[in-house]
Design a protein around this nucleic acid. Structure first.
Length: 449
RNA sequence: UCCUCGGUAGCUCAAUGGUAGAGCAUCCGACUGUUAAUCGGCAGGUUGCUGGUUCGAGUCCAGCCCGAGGAGCCA
């Protein structure tokens, strides 16, 4: 008897097989039972006829509740009525554990996300989280393949870090023997050391932000991929980000068809990814946004009118707001690179453009309300300018002396970016909450399970 | 930190200031082709907490607790 998995069942038509897994749902009648069986690789319908199995097996199958663990045997047969194309005509069923009070209903879904997140350790068995987390797995593998194929060296940055470079307010602090440590909020500065050592490196790991954000787009713990490359300037950084996003989305479209179908994801926007990303200078973005603000204010759609009111709220010389990103996404229906943000609003390590007014940074805005999925740019490579910036941002010089060393010993133009894995998965799957894009989300009010 | 909304059965939600109710799930039963099966039945409640107004509060008022969405900040 072959012990097989649901995803390979089609290879065993007309053969006797054994499946090990759990009861997902059951419909039935007095003499015929339809068991929806899942084993992690998929679900299949097991048809159990009273005349084909011993009396006690049929009675057990009638009695057991959702998520009872079972081993079933039977003959695989083609059936057009099944979504899988095959079903199993059961000849035997063995109950490993009988369950009667599984706390999640098959009909339960996203509206009561807080309840379901309390049960996340069980909810991951359900179809929707299952599909989203499989897409995440594919996205992560695609990211690793992309950089490996291009000769990047995987370069892990530490999670415990000493005093912050970008202000302590958004860092998690913890005792570290006789001193204080912080959980990393970016591996970038360490990535730069790797770029000078290996040329092309990629940092990939969890990052932590103690921001008190309560939105669909924020987690306190999330995974970030951060490539960093020596001799790469702003245009090249945008090329890299664009290629990487395109590769990841195409891998998901190719290898996660079933999952995206299960999620009822309209993939038409994702398919636009093959076109070049518009690249817009901050000043141009301002005029585009002004035009969108005017257009939306004349719209008959109340949503757009409301959005119009929030566009360009921050004013010239300031960062773009959430409404601005939403409007850009609506307008282009594609990922958009916005570069040359005002230097004042960006971090100390960003390289200034020749005017001194703008930073040679770039954000990639994903459409459909997900917002910024990538932030990065060219780093300041001049020792004098960097030291001036450190002073200007009131950063204690001793905390960044190792970083400044990189500008003393063979400084070159270089740069990179960071992409949030969960936001990328959120966009690809179309899930409303970024919390659904990671097995166990951490937010300001959630540490369990 | 600020703004808005919410908290009633396991879940989703009703209930002019006047006997707390329905659907789904659980449990019991019927059904030989069901696709979130269907049908019948039983059971299920400290209405988030504390206080107040009232003959009477799930409902009105005050404070608190918890949650959601958003702003800011960010990926």
């Amino acid at each position: 008897m072959n012990s097989v998995t649901v995803n390979t069942l089609k290879q065993y038509v007309e053969q006797e097989v054994e499946l090990k897994g759990w009861l997902y749902n059951r419909r039935g009648s007095g003499k015929l039972l339809f068991l929806q069986f899942r084993d992690g690789t998929g679900t299949v319908q097991v048809v159990l006829s009273k005349k084909d199995v011993p009396e006690e097996v049929f009675e057990a199958a009638k009695r057991i509740g959702i998520e009872s663990s079972i081993v079933v045997r039977g003959k695989v047969s083609k059936d057009e009525r099944s979504a899988l194309g095959v079903e199993l005509h059961g000849t035997d069923l063995r109950v490993i554990q009988e369950v009667h009070d599984y706390p999640i209903q098959i009909t339960e879904d996203v509206p009561n996300i807080d309840k379901l997140l309390d049960l996340r350790h069980l909810w991951v068995r359900s179809k929707r989280p299952h599909a989203i987390l499989r897409v995440r797995s594919e996205v992560v593998q695609a990211i690793r393949d992309f950089y490996y194929q291009r000769g990047f060296v995987l370069y892990d940055a530490p999670i415990f870090t000493p005093a912050s470079c970008e202000g302590v307010s958004t860092l998690f602090e913890l005792p570290y023997f006789e001193e204080t440590a912080y959980l990393t909020q970016s591996g970038q500065l360490y990535g730069e050391t790797g770029a000078m050592a290996f040329g092309k490196v990629v940092v990939f790991g969890p990052t932590f932000r103690a921001e008190k954000s309560k939105t669909r787009r924020h987690l306190t713990e999330f995974w970030m991929v951060e490539p960093e490359v020596a001799f790469l300037e702003l245009d090249g950084i945008m090329d890299l980000a664009e290629e990487q996003i395109r590769y990841v989305v195409q891998r998901a479209l190719e290898n996660c068809k079933e999952e995206l179908k299960e999620l009822e994801r309209d993939t038409s926007v994702l398919e636009q990814i093959s076109k070049p990303f518009p690249r817009i200078h901050y000043e141009e973005a301002q005029s585009v946004l002004q035009k969108l603000k005017d257009d939306f204010s004349r719209s008959s759609d109340p949503e757009l009118q409301k959005l119009s009111g929030d566009i360009l709220k921050n004013g010239l010389g300031d960062d773009l707001g959430a409404a601005d990103e939403t409007a850009i996404g609506l307008h282009y229906k594609q990922c958009v690179c916005i570069h040359h943000y005002p230097r004042e609003v960006k971090a100390f390590y960003m390289k200034a453009d020749p005017t001194g007014k703008y930073a040679m940074g770039v954000d990639v805005i994903a459409p459909e309300g997900v917002g910024e999925i990538v932030g990065g740019g060219q780093r300041e490579d001049s020792l004098e300018v960097l030291e001036a910036q450190i002073k200007k941002h009131n950063i204690p010089p001793e905390t960044v002396s190792w970083y400044v060393d990189l500008r003393k010993y063979g400084s070159v133009p270089h740069g990179g970016f960071g992409m949030g894995v969960e936001r990328c998965v959120q966009w690809i799957t179309g899930c409303t909450h970024v919390r659904e894009a990671i097995p166990f989300p951490r937010t300001i009010y959630r540490l369990n399970p």
